[in-house]
Simulated assay, not measured.
Amino acid sequence: MASIELDIWRGEWGLASIDLECLKVLTYMKFIGVPVRVREATNPFFTPKGRLPVMKDGRKLLSNFEEVVEHLKSLHYSTDVHLNTKQAAEASAFTQYLREKLYPAYQYAWWVDEKNYCDLTRPTYAKALCIPFNFYYPSHYQNAAKEMVDALYGEHTDLREIERTIYNEAEKCLKTLSDRLGESEYFFGNRPSSFDATVFAYLAPLVKAPFPNSTLANHVKGIANLTRFVARINQKNFRHVTDEYNRLNSKKQSTGTQSEREAANFPNQTRNKILAALFAAVAMTGYAVANGMFQDFKEFENTREYNDMFENDEDDN
């Protein structure tokens, strides 16, 4: 087997990638333990379909999650071999259910909600892209999401009504997922499947990303077993990413605290410096008087040299 390479969107907030599709493929590869070289791409323009992720195995290029799963299965890498016929059918039905009910809400939260798009999504993807593509792709993805939402809910003229409808359906979907998971570690037994990778990819960005308008994210965070599911998979498979994020975040907070302390102490520091300068000036003046420096200067004023200086100035004029 040739060395497998995987190009993905960069990570953020303790996630291995900011992107749903990239997280699907990356998580699945972690589950099966396939050797892979992961690269954070900055330009999807030259990819086969103009998007990420892209898996390269020799001369074969794949960018679709289902195609990646089938290709790796042909190489005898699979997490679904333990599923019986009924479980496999159930996993397929749930996957389609997520696509119909949760995916539109996911896209709405990321791309259609203007507050989220302007304050979170656009700057995050712009940061991941190189110039000039950071000016093009975010708005391109936003337009695609808006077109999808319009095709699904075009009969509603009020955007707020669309939002309520989308999030209500997503909330029902999340409850169904929660009921199916129960207290189990994974959705089908004690081993992960491709469906677990899919669910994690949907939920992890909603749990981790700091959405300004967090309606959908709050639905996820309010379901305890789903948030534990995300935390377990993240810790088991991406611990190095989480640890690095926590380390950098702690360092940033420490630096911020120090800056805040310095800012808080600034008035006192300024006052102390002024008082110290005044004290030094008084002390130096006292020392000068004590040593007769002013007297010496007065005597110097009466000397011939001092008078000559001003006489010369007058002559020059």
Rank of each mutant, 00 (worst) to 15 (best):
V282Q: 09
Q253W: 13
N291M: 11
Y306C: 11
F238Y: 01
Y141L: 13
W111E: 04
G14N: 06
N218Q: 12
A217E: 00
T79W: 09
Y245S: 04
N43S: 07
A280M: 13
A209E: 06
E67C: 02
T198E: 12
E155M: 09
P138C: 04
D158R: 07
L75D: 04
Q295F: 08
A217L: 06
K30W: 00
Y117S: 00
K56F: 07
V220E: 00
F187I: 02
Y125S: 07
S92Q: 14
L203H: 03
G222C: 01
R180W: 05
V36K: 03
E244K: 10
E244M: 08
S250A: 15
N213H: 15
A290G: 10
N213S: 09
I4Y: 12
D150N: 11
T270P: 01
N84Q: 01
L226P: 03
I162H: 03
N237R: 07
D113H: 02
A41K: 08
I4T: 13
K24P: 05
A217K: 05
D80F: 02
S78C: 09
A281C: 13
S63N: 15
V289L: 15
A88W: 01
L6R: 01
R10N: 13
F45E: 00
N246Q: 14
E161T: 14
Q253T: 11
S74A: 08
S184T: 09
Y28W: 14
C22Y: 00
L98V: 05
R160N: 14
L15C: 10
E185R: 14
P53G: 03
F94G: 01
R37G: 00
K60S: 10
L216D: 03
F195K: 02
P48G: 00
F266Y: 13
E169H: 13
T85G: 03
F266C: 10
T42Y: 01
P267H: 08
L152I: 07
Q253L: 14
R304G: 00
